[in-house]
Each structure stands twice: as C-alpha cells, then as structure tokens.
C-alpha cells in the first residue's frame, strides 16, 4: 500500500512541469560546477605528478561536485516536497486517502518514499557525471560510494523536513518557504559556530554530510539521519491525526 502511494506521488511529480524544470536547472548548475572543477584539475595535474600520494580526480573533482549538489538540493527539495500534503488539502483530494482503509502512517510514508524515489534521479545524474571520468582515468570508487550514500541520506532528511512543513499548511508555497527556512537555519547554525564541539553543530543537517564527503561512513552520522527522518515523519503523522480532531489548517 505504501508503494502504491509512493508510485502515485512519483507519477504526480513527473506530471508536473515544476519537477522537470527543477531537474533541468539542477543538472545545468551541477554540470557547470563539474566542468569548472575538471578544468581546475587539469591545471594542477602537472604539479601533482611530482607529489607522492597526491590527491586524484575523485578528491579534486567528485567530492566537491557532491558537496555542491548537497547545497543546491537543499534549495530544490523544499520546492519538490511542498505540494505533497498542502496541495492535497487545497484540492480537497486528501479525503480520498483518509477515507480509504489505510493508516495515516502509511499515507505519510508513501508520500515520503515517493519524494525520495524522485530524488534518486538527481543523485543518479551526479553519480553518472562522476563515473564519466572513468573514460579517461581511474576513480576511487569507495569515495564515490560514500559520497552517494551520504547525499542519499542527506536528501532523505531534507525530504522528511519537506513532508512535515507540507503538513502544516494548505498553501504549497508556504510549505516551501518554511522548509527552506528550517534547512538554511540548520546550515547557518554550523557556519556561525565553526567549533566542531559547539552545541549548535548537533542540529546541523549539512554537517552530517562532511565525513561522507571525505570518504568516511560514520555510523553516528547514519544514525543521526535516521533519527531525524523518524522525528519529522512522526511529527507529520501526529499533525495529520490531530487534524481529524481539530479540523484542517487554513
């Protein structure tokens, strides 16, 4: 049942012009970053040849590319997730789901997984750009895999935030602004307090990508993402259940 709902969300996303435009713009920006990084790599390559244990293309091109993708998708995910629940409310289609013999948990998980499945597309595109380097050299596939896993977890957390803010309103654009605000605030929390032991680092979502970006899969970071996702999904379910008791938000 969850997958039926996820499939429906995926289909609705692909039926909207917004999703295609977001994908196209993302790809344009990331391709630009990729080519700039590649140019820079070619410039320093002759000097790197003299170094022992020099960083390769994966460190100098692929890791910065994933880092850029993380920031750009932080802006894009709220736009992709804003409609999930808010628009169902505005179009009064939520009734179809609420009247069906499925639980609120299934509805929310279905919507979340639908968005995550869609976000697999930009991850795939970024990974494909990186893999294209294999045509002319070698890649550190372990580093690439760590980056892909980290980006996937990061985007899943962004998606959970998007689902939650979408459940707070019936205006998709308000949901997008709320999600963007939350994500930027969490990013700034770590930028403003560079000390890695600072308490604000705990709420920073992007910081939980840094060790993946450097090639390390830290189980504490994985657990942090899983917990954050569970929390936002739980809050969304609670919000929708509450709605049956007190009525819909305006």
């Amino acid at each position: 049942m969850i997958f039926t709902l996820a499939g429906k969300e995926l289909r609705s996303l692909f039926a909207s012009a917004l999703a295609w435009i977001v994908l196209a713009v993302l790809q344009l920006i990331l391709a630009w970053v990729f080519l700039m990084r590649l140019d820079g790599f070619f410039e320093v390559q002759p000097r790197l040849a003299h170094l022992a244990n020099a960083p390769g293309a994966t460190e100098l091109v692929v890791a910065p590319l994933f880092s850029a993708a993380a920031v750009v998708l932080m802006m894009a995910t709220p736009l992709l997730g804003m409609r999930l629940i808010a628009e169902e409310r505005r179009n009064r289609t939520m009734t179809l789901l609420v009247s069906a013999p499925i639980s609120m948990t299934q509805i929310v998980l279905g919507k979340f997984l639908g968005l995550v499945a869609f976000l697999a597309v930009p991850i795939g595109l970024v990974a494909a750009m990186a893999l294209a380097l294999m045509a002319g050299g070698t890649l550190d596939l372990g580093l690439l895999a760590a980056n892909a896993l980290g980006l996937a977890l990061l985007l899943a957390t962004f998606a959970a935030v998007g689902v939650f803010t979408s459940s707070l309103t019936r205006q998709p654009i308000i949901a997008a602004v709320l999600a963007l605000g939350l994500l930027l605030a969490s990013w700034l929390a770590s930028l403003a307090n560079p000390d890695p032991n600072h308490v604000m680092q705990l709420v920073s979502i992007t910081r939980r990508f840094e060790s993946f970006n450097a090639g390390m899969v830290d189980s504490a970071d994985v657990a942090w993402h899983v917990l954050a996702i569970c929390m936002f999904i739980g809050l969304t379910i609670r919000q929708l259940d509450r709605e049956r008791l007190v009525g819909q938000p305006t």
Binding site: R11, S12, T93, I102
Partner: peptide, 19 residues
C-alpha cells in the same frame, strides 16, 4: 477528490488499490 493530472483509468485503478 480527483487528481486532475491522472486519467480516469489511472485514477480508478489507484482508488481500487487504495481500497
């Protein structure tokens, strides 16, 4: 409660699956 972006067949199949 109709999803405007679906066809009649797609929508009815979805409703049937949900039920």
């Amino acid at each position: 409660p109709l999803y405007r972006e679906l066809t009649v067949d797609e929508f009815l199949r979805l409703a049937a699956k949900l039920h």
